[in-house]
Simulated assay, not measured.
Amino acid sequence: MKKIIHKSATRGFANHGWLKSHHTFSFGNYQNSERMNFGMLRVLNDDVVQPKMGFGTHPHKNMEIISIPISGALSHKDSMHNQRAIEVGEVQVMSAGTGLTHSEFNDSKTDAVNFLQLWIIPEVENATPYYNQKMFDKADRKNKIQVLVSPKDKQIEGSLPINQQSIISMIDVDPGFNTEYQLKKGAYFFLIEGEISVENEMLEKRDAIGITDTNNVSIQAIKQSKLLVIDVPMH
């Protein structure tokens, strides 16, 4: 078993006033040769957007982009004529493929938006762009793994498809609950809230651990916790 631990405080940070962003991997002005990616997971940004602010129209190409709101709601508009808000409990998938443009905006006058954005390198370039979003029932991840995203050619029922052999899951665990995660490729465990032990490594809020070269990973909750698991090919 191989482990790599990324504590919350070691992430890159950018303060643009309207946007505060923590970067798990190299992004923008934060460049760290030892933090370029975890396998096909290229970006994991923890963004807070201030009220009535947002990202203007910008392009993407050949990247699988997954957005997960933590608090607030984020309005989305793209060149495929999608114009919707994503809210807490929803997951948004945008497969950029041959290319698209989009914008993201916080319409609230009072509340900031906090969301995670993941970029996963696709297994096939120049695919037809694709967009979808879905509300997931939180009861279905109470002390059990809930699959949010899976490969489009091996799609797990109820999940959103992407153009990569990757599975993204979430689990809400009660204090003292123990479980095991069955590794598919290599898995990156990102703790959204709480305190847990993953393979005897203690994680607190926004800490992460990447694990490879094993079949099962033990998870024990110390406090009420919300854990994101990103299972990706390593090569």
Rank of each mutant, 00 (worst) to 15 (best):
V198A: 02
D137C: 05
R35Q: 15
K142H: 10
H16E: 13
H6Q: 06
N82E: 12
T98A: 15
S71H: 11
Y130C: 00
I156R: 00
G39R: 06
I192V: 15
D107Q: 14
S79E: 09
G39M: 06
T10H: 01
R35H: 14
I209F: 06
E64D: 10
N37K: 13
E201Y: 03
M170I: 14
E157G: 10
E204M: 11
E199K: 06
S197R: 13
M170V: 15
S33L: 13
P69R: 09
M80S: 04
L19T: 08
T10F: 02
K205M: 00
D111F: 12
T57I: 06
N37L: 10
T10K: 05
A139Y: 00
K20Q: 15
L148A: 07
H6C: 00
G97D: 06
L41E: 07
K52I: 06
I222H: 10
K77N: 14
I145E: 10
S8L: 04
P175D: 07
F105P: 08
T98M: 12
G89Y: 02
F189R: 01
E201Q: 11
K7C: 01
F136K: 07
N82A: 09
I66V: 14
S103V: 07
L227V: 00
K3F: 09
N45Q: 05
I211R: 02
L116R: 09
K152H: 13
Q117D: 08
E34Q: 12
S33F: 11
L100G: 06
S8M: 10
A73M: 13
H22D: 11
I192L: 13
T214H: 01
N82H: 15
K2L: 14
T98K: 15
Y30W: 13
N114M: 11
P151Y: 03
T101Q: 14
S26I: 07
A85S: 15
I230A: 03
A187G: 13
H76Q: 10
R84I: 14
G210E: 01
Q224H: 11
G89F: 07
L203C: 07
D140K: 12
T24E: 08
N178P: 01
I5S: 08
I121A: 12
I70Y: 08
I219Y: 02
K184W: 02
K184M: 11
T179Q: 13
W18V: 05
D172Q: 12
N215V: 10
Y188G: 04
L19N: 09
I192A: 07
